[in-house]
Structure formats: C-alpha cells, structure tokens
Design a protein around this nucleic acid. Structure first.
Length: 641
RNA sequence: GCUAGCGUAGCUCAACGGCAGAGCACCGGUUUUGUAAACCGGUGGUUAGGGGUUCAAGUCCCCUCGCUAGCUCCA
C-alpha cells in the first residue's frame, strides 16, 4: 500500500504507507533532511518520526526557522527537566515551554537553586545529549494519564491533564528515564540538541497566580548552531552594556535615593538637559500641529476622581488622600480631568473643534515594588499627554494627524515601529453603545488604512472604556518597547457631560481622544539611553562640544571659542585642567561627547580648532567658523550622524 | 506584594569568623603637556539601618530599608 506525498515544492512521490515524515523528506531533498528538526504534515506540526498513514503534504521545519527554534527549545527544556530530575529525585514538574528567545521550565524543588547549580545542570544536560537518547511519542487515555501522574506524585501534571478535553488521547514524550506530558513535536533524539545555555533562576507562581505555590523557574536558550547562540549571547552582553541604569550613573544623568523613595527619579543636570532638549522639540511640534499647551495642578479634590471613575476602578494605584480643610485630595494619577475642566470653562461650538489640549503632566501612580525598574518603571513620571476634543466626523482625521505625528517623532529618534489595533475587551463599560464602540474602533481602523500603515489586530486588547491603537517601537538592538498609544474614550464624555453645540443648535456629546507620543519622559529617556547606547546625537547631547587647550598658553583662546559656542546656543565646556591632552581626550571619549576641539599654538595662530568627532576620531584642524556652521546644521537637522 | 540573590570609600571591586584594603575619582604638590590613563603625597568607612550569637562579626542568625532577576501588575 502506497500513499501519495506532496512536498513543499509541489513535487509528488508514492511512498509505502507508514513511512515517516523524515523518510519522505530525505526522498525529496537530502539537504532538507539534514536540516529538518520536525515537519509540517498537512500544515500541522509533527515529529520527524510521525508516520504517514494517508496522502499528505509534507514540509520540513528547518532548524533555523521560527518553528524549528521552537522545537529545539522545547526539547532543550525537556533535557533540562531530565537533568534536574537526576539531581533532585522526586522533583515535581510544572510547565516547560519554549518562549521568545529561549525556554524555561518550572520546578517544585526541596531547596532553592543557585547560579552554581546551573553549571551542574548544564553538565548533566551535556551528558544526556551525548547519550543521544531517542525521543519517542506515545499516547494514553486521559484516565491513564491522570493515574500515571498520580502514581508519580506529579500533582502539577495531574492538574494540567485534568484540564485537557475529555476523550482525546494525550501525548507524552519519553527520552531515557524521563517522560513528560507534551504536545510536541520534538527533536528526534537528545543528540540533535546542538547548543544551549542556561541563563537564570527565578521564582514563578504556579499558573501565574500569586495565591498559589511558588515554583523555581530556570531560563535558558538554545539555537540551531553555535554561531547563532554566540550572537544571541553577544546581544545580551551588548544590552547589558547599554543598560540605562549603568549608563545613567556613568554619564551622570540621573539617580534614585533611598531617602527620597522608591521609584522616584532625580534628574541630574545632564539628564535634565537631554529631557529639556526633547521637551523643547516636542513643544515646537505641538504648536506646529495646532495643539494648545495647558498646565493643571498636581493635586485635586477626590470628587473629580470619583466622577471620572478612577477611584472606583483604580484606587489601588492611587496614593492615599490628603485631608485639606476637611476635604480629601488626591495626588494626580492622570491628567484627563483637568483638561476636561478647561474644555468646559465655556460653551464650545462645532466651529471651535477640534480642540487639542496638551500637557507635560507629572503624575504619581502606585506600582508594586517588584515592578519598579530604573527609569523605565517608576512611581512618579511626566507624561507627554494630550486630550483631543472633536466631533464624530472629525475622529478619523484626528487619528490620522496623531499617526502622522507619531511617524515623524519616531523617525527623528530612529525607531521603527509596528501598530496594533486593540478592540473591545470582554469586560467593558456598559454605558457606551455598540454603535459607539464600533464607530470608535472603525475611526481608528480607517486612519490606519488611510495612512497605509501595516497593523495587527489585538482582538479584545482594548481597555474597558476605549479601543486603542498601540504602537510598539523597535530600538537599535531590535528590542521591543512600549510606544505611543491612542485611545478613543467612551467613558469620560458621558461622566463629565462633555458636549459641543452642533450646527443644528443642539448640544452633542464630544469625542475625547487620549494620546501620548513619547509616553513618559522617564521611560522615554531611559529607553533612548539604551537605544543610543549613551551616544546621543548632537541635538540631544548634554555636552555637545568640549574644548581642550594644550597648555596654559591656549586657555584664553579656548575660552573664547567656548563663549562663541554658548552665544550660538550650544552646550560647550572647556577642559582647562592641568592634564595631558591624551588624558583629556580619553575622558571626553568616555563621556561620549560628540565633538572635542583641541587647540594649541597652530590653531590659535590660524583661528582654527582641531576637530575630534565621536564617530570619526581625529579629523584635523578646520577654521572655527566652519566647525560652527557644521555643528549648527547637524544640530538643526536632528540627525544622528 | 511573593521567591531568590545582592548591598563594603563618590565609582568599580577585594578581605578563611581574627588590624577594612586596592584602582579610579577627590584634595595638595611636581610636570606645560598635541588626540583613549604623567609622577609624588594626602583625605575619605558606625561595611545600607537596627538587633542577636561569639573572646572576636563585613563575614553567622533575625528584623527593616533599598537594588536586581523573575512572577504579578500596567487607567
């Protein structure tokens, strides 16, 4: 009996029924067979050992493809689990999936693991790999699987199995003395796992539930070949070098202080300079795009947050009330109510709309201590916030305008991005009608389409009061960052009765769009530090030029250059310390200053400066005025050159 | 918040339960210097804070604070 097998390139062959996927692949293409770690059989992922019992389409899953890496990592997690089982007989296994860039496995162990244990586990894994144990799939009934899990004392597995649908066969994978509940597919044998590395140990709750047992999770990664693994580890190292907390200290940008409090950022002069440069730029753009800038207070009576719905819904993120003249006040967790109150200080006509109110508003929110992280996750931060009040007809145009703004700003900072349309969640506000949800969501969608933006739909990913567009940023290392967000609010217009007078003379409910481009200044600057690895382009660099006189005789000339630079609006300083030039050059380089001007006898005589740029090094002497012109154009272009 | 690890001079890091140290930074001097670290000397510590064990604690134990990894959370 034969079956007809169609290969991914369209070729067909007759093979004996019951041939394995691997046999099929090797018949078609021996190179693919060497590279395959699993197969797609009729589009479904399967082991290479899977038998072809009927006509099928077969496609190899290559080791270096996304699916292939997933298979490799999943097998790696099983090998790790087996190794841990050897070290801790009686260990209870929880879950061990492959994840982006690696894998993990959660264990319930009698003692806590240390970093040294990872080495031992790695060695044991290596032994398992050298034994090249075949990985085989087997199926059991649910009852049998539960009985087996109970017999082995595997309480977590038991729970997992009992949650699986009844009546279906449940698959297990076995390699040597280790068997695990698993959907698969897996590598054909442990020897096919070429290179892996264990990375860290951490606590993790069973099923992510903090009320349940805390398990120990080991993270690791695995790749198709040693080179890919090395590259990945190098990237991790590079990311560590760029860590904004490390650079923030080295470049004297910011700090935190125990006595000031957790999650509160102290911006040092240089950090504040970067922030100010970004803010000035932002204000320029806001005015160009016809926003109005407002300021609202840092505390407000609790009444306004009761009305907005924040206290009922988000009180656990707000700080406790301050009692002032027997009235309860709150430190502001958001800027919307203030902006709405400004809108409502007069009657608004449709002719006035849209009204775009923007504020760099500082807000305070309670974040659990374990969530805090440098500048990226804090308890006090300044939002680049705006609320746009408009008519339903204006909605799409406004969203489009914001998308254009986003595109421009992200371009300047050198981020690429991807848009997500997040639709109505399962738990949503009942006050808004289906029509309103649809109108808001479609407004967002149409704006994306009109701008020709590629977007993914995040079904049910909206917030309870609004559908939204989330923009994810990709930095210089290709890492993902939370970026701009645009929300059409279906809650506040009703709660605050926000209206405008339409051409029919009637009051109509206004639409409120929340949007932020940069997010918070803290997070954005923290991210930028890592994106630029501390090498800020000239327009952002806290010190743009440092002048190094060779000896005392050149101090006066150096200072005159500094005065000219400062007068032209640049941030320049003169290093007239009693040190050798090599030493000063080194310090300027360590501080990542974009331009160093070295001045000695030759330069003084000719009105020149020897330019050393961060990017190109020694560029030789040029007329100072020429340098100034270059600096001006580079700074104004805001290019990262 | 939970689990684990960590916290020593401004910074980076040493110190078996036995005198708290180095480099850099800083200060004073010498040196007048040409593109990534000149030389000599000096100041600097209640070892995060508190309690305990011990003849003796940076080191062991307990509590508090903070940082970190992850879980969790993110209007």
């Amino acid at each position: 009996m034969n079956v007809t097998v169609e290969y991914s390139d369209g070729r067909k062959l007759e093979l004996p029924k019951g041939s394995t996927a691997m046999e099929a692949i090797s018949k078609f293409n021996s190179a693919d067979a060497r590279n395959a770690v699993a197969a797609l059989v009729d589009g479904r992922r399967a082991d290479l050992s899977a038998r072809l019992e009927a006509d099928a389409k077969v496609e190899p899953i290559r080791a270096d493809s996304e699916d292939g890496l997933d298979v490799i990592r999943h097998t790696a997690s099983h090998v790790m689990a087996q190794a841990v089982g050897h070290m801790f007989p009686g260990v209870k296994y929880a879950i061990g999936p492959s994840i982006e860039n690696g894998f993990y496995y959660d264990f319930d162990l009698p003692r806590s693991l240390t970093e040294e244990d990872l080495k031992t586990i790695e060695e044991e894994m290596q032994r398992i790999i050298e034994q090249d144990l075949p990985v085989s799939r087997s199926a059991r009934s649910k009852q049998q699987a539960i009985a087996d899990a109970e017999a082995g004392g595997q309480t977590y597995k038991r729970e997992l199995i009992s949650d699986l649908p009844d009546g279906e066969e449940i698959s297990f994978y076995t390699q040597g003395d280790f068997t695990d509940l698993c959907r698969g597919p897996h590598l054909p044998s442990t020897g096919a796992l070429k290179c892996f590395k264990l990375l860290s140990v951490a606590g993790a709750y069973w099923r992510g539930d903090s009320r349940r047992q805390q398990l120990q999770r080991i993270y690791g990664t695995a790749f198709a070949d040693a080179k890919a693994l090395r590259t990945h580890l190098k990237n991790l190292e590079e990311a560590e070098k760029r860590d904004h907390r490390k650079l923030g200290k080295e470049l004297d940008l910011f700090s935190t202080d125990q006595e000031i409090g957790q999650g509160l950022i102290l911006w040092h002069p240089k950090g504040a300079m970067i922030r100010r440069a970004i803010e000035s730029f932002l204000y320029e753009e806001l005015f160009k795009r016809e926003y109005d800038v407002v300021c609202t207070p840092h505390i407000a009576s609790e009444k306004v947050y009761l009305r907005s719905g924040h206290i009922p819904k988000y009180e656990d993120m707000m700080y406790a009330p301050l009692v002032i003249d027997e009235e309860r006040y709150r430190v502001k967790p958001m800027n919307c109510p203030g902006h709405i109150k400004i809108y409502q200080t007069r009657k608004r006509s449709y002719r006035d709309l849209p009204i775009r109110l923007a504020e760099l508003g500082t807000v305070y929110r309670y974040e659990i201590s374990g969530a805090l992280l440098g500048m990226l996750r804090v308890r006090g931060f300044t939002q680049d916030d705006s609320h746009i009040f408009c008519t339903p007809e204006q909605l799409t145009d406004e969203i489009e305008g914001i998308l254009d703004f986003v595109n421009y700003m992200m371009g300047v900072f050198g981020y690429t991005y991807k848009a997500y349309l997040a639709t109505r969640p399962a738990q949503y506000l009942a006050d808004a009608t289906d029509e309103e949800w649809t109108r808001a969501t479609e407004g967002l969608r149409q704006a994306l389409v009109r701008r020709g933006l590629d977007y993914a739909v995040d079904e049910g990913g909206g917030v309870f009061y609004a559908p939204k567009i989330d923009i994810k940023l990709f930095d210089a290392l290709g890492r993902e960052w939370q970026g701009p967000t645009i929300q059409v609010d279906l809650n506040l217009p009703k709660r605050f009765n926000v209206t405008y007078t339409a051409s029919d003379g009637q009051e109509h409910e206004a639409i409120i769009i929340h949007r932020t481009i940069l997010g918070s200044m803290e997070r954005f600057v923290g991210g930028l530090i890592e994106h630029y690895a501390g090498k800020f382009p000239v327009w952002l660099a806290p010190v743009q030029v440092r002048i190094l006189p060779i000896t005392d005789a050149h101090h006066e000339y150096a200072r005159s250059l500094k005065r000219k630079l400062v007068a032209a609006g640049f941030r320049a300083e003169c290093d007239d310390r009693n040190e050798k030039t090599g030493f000063k050059v080194r310090e300027a380089a360590v501080q990542k200053i974009p331009y160093v001007l070295i001045v000695g006898d030759r330069e003084v005589a000719e009105g020149k400066a020897a330019v050393r740029s961060r990017r190109r090094g020694d560029e030789g002497a040029v007329l100072f005025d020429d340098f100034l012109a270059r600096l001006k154009s580079e700074s104004e272009s805001r290019l990262d050159v």
